[in-house]
């Protein structure tokens, strides 16, 4: 009885959970699978606010293609980076 209920409730919830988390995981797999562990480390460090480490910030800005607005504010902090 409980098992039947688990399947009945579980499958829709499971689909919702998979779809809800899919963005994070797909992004993670694409970045780490396509670009490699170094780029993924930068992505993760950036995400957790540790990007103000000067070397990483410079690395990010040197590879920055101008698509994201938030990078402009960060750029002001990194006047020492050689582009």
């Amino acid at each position: 009885m409980i098992l039947k209920e688990i399947w009945q409730i579980g499958i829709p919830l499971y689909i919702v959970e998979l779809l809800g988390n899919s963005y994070t995981y797909i992004a993670g797999f694409i970045i780490s699978g396509y670009f490699g562990e170094n780029e993924y480390a930068i992505y993760k460090k950036w995400k957790y606010g540790a990007a103000l480490d000067r070397d990483n910030l410079c690395y990010y800005l040197n590879h920055y293609d101008g698509r994201y607005d938030h990078a402009y504010s960060v750029e002001k902090l990194s006047s020492g980076c050689r582009k």
Binding site: Y14, E17, G28, E37, A41, I42, K45, A50
Partner: peptide, 30 residues
């Protein structure tokens, strides 16, 4: 983040990513 080398931290994050995805797939919203 600051202690580990970039590639080591990246690999550590990849391990966490794979484990998270596998855990999500096999838990069936339990």
């Amino acid at each position: 983040v600051r202690t580990l080398d970039k590639n080591i931290y990246g690999t550590f994050s990849q391990v966490n990513l794979v484990a998270d995805v596998v855990s999500l797939v096999f838990s069936i919203a339990i």
